[in-house]
Each structure stands twice: as structure tokens, then as C-alpha cells.
Design a binder for these strands. Sequence first.
DNA 1: AAGGAGATTTTTTTT
DNA 2: AAATCTCCTT
Length: 979
Amino acid sequence: MSDLVAPLAPAAERVTAGLSAAQREAVLHGQGPLLIIAGAGTGKTTVLTRRIAHLITSRLARPEQILALTFTDKAALEMAERVDQLIPYGYAETWIATFHAFGDKVLRDHALDAGLDPGFRVLTQPEQVIFLRERLWRLPLSRYRPPGDPTRHLQALVGFVSRAKDEDVGPAELRACADARAARAGSPEERDDAEALLELAAFYESYQSLLAEASCLDFGDQIHRALRLLRERPAVLARLRERFPFVLVDEFQDTNHSQLELLRLLAEGGTSLTVVGDDDQAIYRWRGAASGNLIAFRELFPDAKQVVLVENHRSTQEILDCAGRLVAYNNPYRLEVVAGIDKRLVSQRGPGEPPRHRHFDSVSAESDAVAAEIEALLSRGHRPRDVAVLVRSNADADPFLRALNVRGIPHRFSGSRGLYAREEVRLLVAFLRLLAAPDDSVSAFYLAASELYRVPPPELLRLNRFASRKTRPLLEVFRALPDEAELAAVGGAAREAVARLLRDLDAAAAEMASKRTGEVLYLFLQGSGLLAKLAAESSAEAEARVKNIARFFQVVRGYGDVAVHDRVPDFVAHLELLRDAGDDPAVAEADPDEDAVQVLTVHKAKGLEFAAVFLVGAAEGKFPVQRRRAPLELPEELVKSRLAGAGADAELMEERRLFYVAMTRAKESLLLTSAADYGTARPRKVSRFVVEALDLPSPSPALRRSQAREALERERPAAEPPALPPAPLPADAPLSLSFRQVDDYRTCPLKYKYVHRLRVPLPVHHRVVYGNAVHHALQAMFKARLEGRPFAAEDLVAAFRAAWVSEGFLSRAHEEERRATGERNLRRFFDEDAAAPLQPTGVEEEFAFFLGATKVQGRYDLVVQDAEGVAIVDFKTGTVRTQKEADQRAKDSLQLDLYALAHERLRGALPARVELRFVESGRVGSRRPEPEQVREAERVVEEVARALRARDFTARPSYRACAPCAFHDICPHTAWHSE
DNA sequence: AAGGAGATTTTTTTT
DNA sequence: AAATCTCCTT
């Protein structure tokens, strides 16, 4: 601690600079429980991050004693970045994470205590459905029968169990509830219901044991399991309380019962709990959040200090008043009434323009008018990124995307689904399908028509007709094309394209039996030239496609991780199952720096703000949506989360809060729009929320239907947004860099783009497999030593084997040879180390520090403390022949200088030594870090950061850079040719 | 005015 | 599958 005092002093003053009196009070409040009730736009995250900074700088807490919990990764990341900006010292040890990540960490640290296999895997909901399909020979539940096929049935069950866990309800509790119901059942229907519930409890129980057998966890279960663990193991709980005496929670209104219980357990040990929330922004009831959390907190901690933030820094008063009028319709269930506080928002930005409402005949008129208004805003100097179009449902966005596109307004829709619908992904799926099933003519057709092969449409139709007439698969017709007299009229372009398709397909088919799906797919991407084509384009659209391809590779890899037999046909079958079970990942996020109008769902917009907001589709039945009940609902008496209001009211009130969240995103201008005709048989009425918010005299009468033109308009296909070059970033834009990134950028900026920006999927190189396995083994060894656990040579070899992946090797013999070499080297390393054991004080320790706005992060392999002082050690697996070469490598290593720099920034002084340890030869390249050389490294990082912010990805081809580069055969600039 | 028949509509999403 | 809306009859 002592070395931290000096740099901390000036930061302490900065922590509260610019805060309002109420914010300052919230930030500086002492150690007891603290409830910060913070309305929209009052600086919730600011207060929380400043409080974290205050705890550290005032030395009430050490950074590693603080745990800050959020609900999304994005929120955690943002908070971490903002804390970093305030106090760039030692923050790396502060735990800022999602509830999920925290629960997962607790379980992984205490897996054995929790009765879990330490290597447990977490299944997504679609994966759970598949998991059950494979294991249940007969579907459970004869009485509850959700509509549809067995998959829907399983989906309903999985949803039910996940909901039960949100409410901290286990199988036993469910059974008790069923018994109680049976006991007081009067009518035969009630007895039936109780029986059905009993079936459900039995299913829940057997599902739990099936998961345990397979050492799996269902996604969302981490907190529930962590909670159980802490209840059953007081020692673990005590350690956790000791570890985190300070816990802070953002968006507290969105916690579910299990999460609340976990917080309660921690706080009972004296943990200082700070929560920030706003009951009017509770919008996650459907995933178990309880809108009455703030009230529950006040009752749980009657002595909690309470601060109410009402100074709104975001919106004009007119907007706030309308939003306030709307949400007041949720009285008397709101906190204001229940707790008798006043949290009406007071704008710090003046009255502004009142929000408007416009109603249209049809959705096309609505979307066109919105696009026109946006165009006008842009022509008056607004940036596209300052404008948002908010929708209630993903599907509502379509007409608006089209209208923006017609006017050429740059825009971006961030939905949460749709990866499989993307053209580039469908192309890959079609290819895999055709490989797995050569008679799949739909895939053959799709592939042939795709932009990759472009068989001319009339010719393709002719081939297709021929195939159906002869009842032969299209692929066979392709193969027969050169010799088939009846098809002699097919032109040369088509013949060439078909030949290309067959060549690519056959090349992949030859590898299919021996290679994993990912490898086969990669060969196709490369062989067909698709990757090269996309990589050569510099438009945002091409970048998005490459990113989506990378996402699809994640799905492929996810399968490879669990599959016994990862081959194309198996994967294709699995993919069908996944999609049937409802899996549809989001498309890759577009470049966040892209200057485009944002089209978002209200849920996605939470926490964001825009100068101008268009809240569209504000019609009855759309917003509020007409809800559908969950197929299996948790019995009422088991729902412990406190909901403000009850029954049908609760649903409407949640929709109203959602509308409130949407309205309060606007800083200056807010337009609500609606239409009579959204393509449904009945005309829509204006949303009651519009009437409430704007205090309209009476609901407008339904308008007449529009004409046939409307139906045609709706069929027009949605077009892609126009491509935009990414804008350069300002010098103070946050940027994170690792050594790898700096190194790759210096080698070649285009390589950096391929690897770190586009994340072009790469086949795994055997050297990487080898290096990773060695690192893993060494890490396990030194971790054991650090924790004082015994660790034998056999353990080292076992860890090496466990980390081994059979991918990228030239042959089976090659793989065996590499594995034997690794084991031999590790055994020798073990023996040599035994003679003079390294005593690490840190293993795989992460670090992060700031150079201006640039965050430099990384991980030391080993930190060793000896008589000479601190040494930072990095293990290398490459060969070095002589000691001189080892010394030279250490001397030239930018990596070592960066490590030295990190140590200097975080601990106040350069380490005594930095070392490269070559595992193969046992040689050590060691040196003292020179201040001058460290400064030079700092300069290099700054230079790379500057170039990255300028978006300079100009290729720097050279023999040295290109020869070892994984992209040399797709890169259009390569200075090296293999043939 | 009440009520029955029949038509119409049905979402958000964390790793 | 269930809630809500409109239309129509009484």
C-alpha cells in the first residue's frame, strides 16, 4: 500500500470534481448500506464509478476488496474504463463484472465444494434443449402440454427451470408446493393441476441429475448454484465476505431473487453494500427481475442511508415532464408513493421543445416521414450518431431501415438475432450442407446462385429444371454438365462457374473425413477466394461480413469443443438441431465508431442517450405489446420477487416503464409516431402511452385502412445500409492494446486488421497448439507451487496432455512426435527446476496501465522475488542454439520492456530483471531493464495507438513480414510467393 | 347494455 | 393457447 500513497493524493480531489451536492453525498457516504435512488440521466454510472474511486483513494478500501456488479458485459466494461480513467493505479485488481461472471468465478474457484466437476460447461438454452432431446427417451409431463412439437415442449421445460432458479426455487420446494396444492384441492381440476405440478417437480429433479452426470450447468444457473454453495459451506461464505468487504451494484432494480439473496448473504457478514437503481426503469421482469427491489432493500436494511438523485443532466424539462406524467400512471405502486419520496427529475438544460406526436395512415408513411425528419436534422448539422430510432420489437425496425436506406442515410440496426439469416453465413451453411448431403439441391442452388459463383440465373434455372425433370440431384446435373448433350446450350460463363464450384466442393470433400469442421470450412474460405475478396474490400459492409463469418466460426468451434466426433456431417446435424431449438446468435456489432443513425430496441437503448429520439410504432398492440403467457408458469406462491403491482397490471406497468425508458433517452428532441396500418387486418389505435405522456384530450379514433399500395410497399426487400469508411478516432478515444497487438501492428498494419479487427478465422497452427500446451502445463505447476500444493513431474505432463488439441498437425506421426518432444522437454524442465526451484510471487498475473487514453494490458507468465529484487519471467518455446542468441533475444524484446514499463507504472519502480526462459533448451536470456529502452517502448506503443486511432491499415509488405504471415495467400499486398 | 360469436394478435434477451 | 377486440344479436 505505502507505495501508492503519493500518486493517489491528487486523484482524491478529482473524484468529486464537477458533481452536484446530492451526487457528492452519494459518492462520499461511508461504509454502511447505501441506497442511491437515481432517476434517468442523473449520472448513475458516474456516481458508482466515482464511489469506487473514492473508496480506493481515501483508502477506505484496497482495490482488490471491491466487487462491482452489473448485468451486461458492456456495462461492466464501461464502468471499468471509467474507473481506470479516474485512478490508473492498481485498479486491475478491482472486480468489476456481471453477476453471471461473478457466479461463474465463485463456482469455478470452489467447484469441488459445490459438488461440481471443475471442468464444468455452461449450456445455453438451445443447447439445453438438445441435451434433453438426446437423453429423454420419452418426453416427461403428460398433463402440461405446451402447443407444438417436442422441441417446443422441451423449450417450455427449460424456460420453466430457468425461471425457477431466478426465484431460488429448487425441486424440493416445487414438490412441497405441489403437495400443498393437492392437499387443499377441492375440484377435480385442482387435483389435476396439483398432479401436473408434481410431474414438473419430478422432471426438474431428474434434469438436475442429468446435468450433474454430464458435468454441465444450465446458463443462468451460476448465481443460483453459487448461492446454494454459500448456504451449504459457511467457510466459503466467510472467505468471500472477507475477500469483498465492499460490494456495489448497478441497475439494482433489475436483480432477481437469487441475486438479491446472494447480496443479502454477503451483507450479513458486514459487507458494505451500495446499490444504485430506479424503480421506473425496471424492464426485465421476464427474466426474473423484481420491480420492487428498491423497497425490498429498504426493508432489508432499515438503517441504510438513502440518497435521491433528481438533477437530470441529459434531457430538457419538457421531455422529462412528459415522461414523468406517463410513468405517474403506475401510481400508487411506484417508489415515490410507497416510500413517500419525491424523485421528479429537474433538468439542468432548460425547458426545450415539447415532445411531439404524429399519426399516419400506414407504416410506410410513418417510416418515410421519420426518415425525412432525420434527413432534415442532418442537414441542420446533427451527426447521424446523435439520432436514434427506437422500436419495441426487433421486427418493427424493418420499414424504418428501408426508409433510411432509400434516402441514403447511414444507419445501423443492432438487433439481437439474425446471424443465420446473413447472406455470408447462409453461404457457408449451404456449403457445409451440400458437403454433408450431396443430394441437397436447395443448398446446391443457393451456392451456385451466390455472389461467390454467380451462375447466370437463366442458366441455373435451366439446369434446375433439367434436374427436376430427370429427378436427379442438382449437384449430379452440375457434374454431368460437360457431357450432357441436352444441356449443350448452357453458356461458357455458367460452365466455368459450375466447374469452380465443383472444384471447391471436391477439394473440401477430400479433407472431410480427416479434418474437423472448422478446418474444412477454413480451407473452403481460402480455396474459394471468398476471404481474399472480402479482406481486399475496405468498406464497413465487407468488414461486417468478415466479422459475421468469424461469429459463425465461434459456433463451429463451440461444437468442436464438446463433440466426440467433430466432422462436417455431424456438425450439420447439430446445427439443424440448434436452430430448431431456437438458436439464432446476434449479427456482429458494426463498428461502434461508425457515424450512423442508430436503430435499436428500447431494451438495447437502455443506458444510452441521443440528441434526437424517434420512438416509432407507438400503437396499441405494438407498444404496449400484447403479451403471450409463458407456456409453463411458476406457481404464484413460489414467486418471491416483489413485483410492484399485481396481475395484468404488472405487465402493463412494465410496458409503461419501458416507454418511459425510451422517452428519457432523448436529450433535445423527441418524436412519437404511430400508424393505423401495420399490415394487420385491423387498424391500430394510437398507443395509450402517447395519450398519457402528451396529455392528449382523448384517444384518437381508428383511422381507415390504406390501399393495396401499402401491401406492395411491405414486400419490398430490405436493402443493406450504404457502406461507409470508418471515421478516424479522436486522440482521447479509449483504446486497449496488448503486446501482441502492438507487435502485429508493427509487423504490418494490415495483418493487425486481419487478426485483431476483423478476427479472420485462422486454422490453428501446430506451433500454437504446442506453445499453448506448454504454457498451460507450466502455469499449472507454478500455480500449485504458489498455493503450496504438491506437484509431481507426472502432474506437469498430465496438464500438458490436457491442454493439447489435435489440430493443425501434418500427420498423426507428426502430432505424436511433437507431443513426445513436449513431454520430454517438460520433464527435463521439471528436473532442472527441482535443482534450484523458482519461487514465484505471481503466476499469470494480469496487468493494465494507461498511456494517455490508451490502456495497455497483458499478463506476466511469472513474477519472481529473490535477493536481487523482482524479476519478470516470460516462457518461450522456440529454439535458441546459443547463450548469445538467448541474450540477444532478451535484449531486443519489446515485450520485456513493456512488462518492465507495466511494473514501473503499477509498482512505482522498474523490476530488477526481465527474463526470457526458453523451455526447450533451458537457456535463460536475462537482463536489467534500461530506463531509456523502456521509454522507447512507451514511445512505440504511443505511436501504434496514434496510427490505430487514425485508422491506418496500410499494408507494409516485406519478405520478413509476409513469409511467416498466416494471411500471405489471401493478402492482395503480399511480397512473398509460395510457388 | 350485455353478452356471445368469431376474428385477430401475440416481445424483450445475459455468456 | 389465451387475451382482447369488433361485430352482431337480443
